[in-house]
Amino acid sequence: MDVILPNLGFLLSGLATTAVLALISIVAGTVLGIVLGTLRYTSVPVLGQAAAIYIEFTRGIPLLVFLFLFYFALPALGGYKVSAYVAAAQGFSFFIGAYLAEDFRSGLRSVRPQLKQAARASGLTETQVFRHIVLPIALRRIIPTLFNQYVRLFKFTSVASVIGVSELTGRAMLVNAREFAPIAIIVTLALTYLVCCLALSSIGRALSHRFTVRT
């Protein structure tokens, strides 16, 4: 404790960075997941196939390599500069988006065709059927999966320290370099992630309980 307390402010602001990074990536990744999942679900020509290729590629490579693509490779290719923080946010969002896209697609597919038919029969247009029937049902059904992915993403954010983002893990390593108390620091770090992830999961459970679709 005597190494943690003096550095508490420093570590907590790292935790704040982690939380903001996770939140940005969760929101952006979810939006991307819905768009890509919808493109796959409706099998829009060209765009649907492009989405499929993107999803397959992203799901086939490690997160760390994906982050390196956004931090090193793409800026080198495009001749632009990007901060580690922005690269991490981009990388996480695009990475988690690919996984969420598949979850959304299976959620969208879980809606029975007869139910869509009934909605059409009442005069709803295809867009209205999607917006008011298919999407809300799919969203509710995948809340548990969604939050599993969010927890995964929260853990992922620790990898941002590797490209130099000063989030929780990065700051803990800095404190360790100064104080050299690796056991205390790493155990504290582990417990902090543990508590945050458990909290995130329990939010997910509460939401999925609240929004269960019973048939």
Binding site: T157, I186, Y193, C197
Partner: peptide, 10 residues
């Protein structure tokens, strides 16, 4: 619920 990176650091 602990990141893999932290497992390795441990």
């Amino acid at each position: 619920n602990i990141p893999l990176l932290i497992h390795m650091y441990f």
